[in-house]
């Protein structure tokens, strides 16, 4: 008996049909298929199992698999919706959908809140904000005095923590972003609109019409 390896059987665990993902995200079917090309590349960079491991995400973001980064850790945790230690294709597409230029702003605001709520308490706390500032300074090899960093964090809290309870809740965050819309600029990746140009190989193999 022969063994026929069909295209379907080669799909990794967690693979979801592009038509399903396109219906639930701002992406078209073609764009989801192009994202699959990107996903395949990322998910085979260290362990070729069709799943993105944390080291693979770090490698893609920083060209270094061993360099721990606060942002990469948070992104990984938020993308890993099932919390099983890997990012599956469906999780990858749904999460990236939030970064699409056409995604609802409310989704971007909520995602940024969860990103900055480092310990997932439902609040952005003073020490979390300071930790993020320290992380970005470390990232950029910038040195600022602790006093200066705390002044910046204090000032930000005095503007954003309108209830004055020492922590920023989602409601305060939404209000703060509405006054400072540039804060969610990093929640939009214009590149996602051109994803089919970046990964054109799918055009030859695409099975579904948009």
């Amino acid at each position: 008996m022969g063994c026929v390896l069909t295209k379907k059987s080669r799909r990794p665990p967690g693979y979801e049909e592009p038509t399903v993902l396109a219906a639930e995200t701002p992406f078209t079917v073609s764009e989801v298929e192009a994202l699959y090309e990107l996903f395949k590349k990322l998910s085979s960079s260290i362990i070729d199992d069709g799943l993105i491991h944390k080291e693979e995400l770090q490698l893609a973001l920083f060209r270094n698999r061993n360099r721990r980064n606060l942002f990469a850790d948070r992104i990984f945790d938020l993308f890993d919706v099932k919390r099983n230690g890997v990012i599956e294709f469906g999780e990858f597409v749904r999460s990236l959908g939030i970064f699409h230029p056409n995604a609802p702003v409310e989704d971007k605001i909520a995602f940024a809140f969860r990103l900055y709520d480092l310990r997932q308490t439902g609040f952005i706390e003073w020490d979390e904000l300071k930790e993020m500032v320290l992380a970005l300074l470390h990232e950029s090899d910038l040195v600022l005095s602790d006093d200066f960093i705390e002044t910046i964090v204090n000032k930000t809290f005095s503007d954003a923590d309108t209830k004055g309870d020492g922590k920023i809740d989602l409601e305060e965050w939404k209000e703060f972003v509405s006054k400072n819309p540039s804060l969610i600029k990093n929640m939009t990746l214009p590149y996602l609109k051109d994803i089919t140009l970046a990964f054109p190989s799918f055009v030859i193999s695409t099975e579904v019409e948009d």
């Binding site: 973001l61 980064n69 942002f71 900055y116 904000l129 993020m132 540039s182 590149y191």
Partner: peptide, 25 residues
Amino acid sequence: KPVSMNAFELISRAQGFSLENLFEK
């Protein structure tokens, strides 16, 4: 000297806090 810098603004602008590198070839 008043500080007008916003900590979230700093974070959101930081290169290391961006997903853009995912798309670099």
